[in-house]
């Protein structure tokens, strides 16, 4: 992984005689003023963020049997996203989650409702779950329940919730949302 090695105060413009880094640590963190950036936080975020997503995915899958489930999974993703926000500012947050929170909320609800509808149409009754199990040579005994889909819906919705709140509480997150933030000071 190539990183921009210049710490604090690096300017956006490529300086003469120096090659611009092929890849940035965080895609959009350079929009922040240099004084606000912390290389430590950016590195930690870069390293942690993918693992955070994996943990969230694990929680959805493992929810049937172990501690986890859709709600905590969504919160974990939300925590990861707020890490991106703190480390890289609103632009970075926007590039981490380019999807409109309203669509996330809607998708989450639609997945859950659709899951209920499929059960109804299949004749098992609304919101009923089915479990499949497979024995594979390398992975051993695998089990999957359709309730996972429901959990995924919850997770998507919770992510949408967190994104919604972060977007409003942090000023001008999306590039087109340049509305000034109002301070509540007496």
């Amino acid at each position: 992984m190539t990183t921009d090695r210049t710490p604090h105060g690096q300017s956006d413009k490529p300086q003469p005689g120096r090659q611009e880094p092929r890849q940035r640590l965080l895609p959009a963190a350079h929009h922040e003023p240099p004084t606000r950036r912390s290389v430590l936080l950016e590195v930690v975020t870069r390293v942690l963020y993918p693992s955070v997503l994996v943990v969230a995915a694990y929680m959805v899958v493992a929810g049937e049997h172990r501690t986890g489930g859709g709600f905590p999974a969504g919160l974990v993703v939300g925590a990861g996203l707020s890490l991106r926000f703190l480390a890289g500012g609103p632009h970075e947050f926007g590039s981490a989650m380019p999807i409109n929170p309203a669509s996330l909320l809607g998708t989450g609800l639609a997945v859950m409702a659709g899951y209920g509808l499929v059960g109804e149409l299949a004749g098992d009754g609304a919101l009923s779950s089915t479990t499949w199990s497979v024995d594979l040579p390398v992975f051993g005994h695998l089990e999957g329940s359709t309730a996972m889909i429901f959990d995924a819906g919850v997770a998507i919705l919770v992510v949408g919730l967190v994104v919604d709140v972060l977007r409003v509480m942090g000023p001008g997150v999306a590039p087109d949302d340049q509305e000034p933030e109002e301070e509540d000071q007496p």
Binding site: G63, E64, H65, R66, T67, G68, G69, G70, F71, L105, G108, L109, M112, A113, G116, A126, L127, S128, S129, T131, E143, S145, A147, F150, D151, V154, L157, V158, G160, L161
Partner: peptide, 28 residues
């Protein structure tokens, strides 16, 4: 019956799934 062992999660996604949908709708 659902072949699971996490009771809390089963309550949320199976036994009381309709309640969950109601709750997240309120949340939304």
């Amino acid at each position: 019956e659902a072949g699971a062992s996490n009771v809390v999660n089963t309550v949320l996604t199976d036994v009381r799934a309709l309640d969950t949908i109601g709750e997240v709708t309120v949340l939304t």
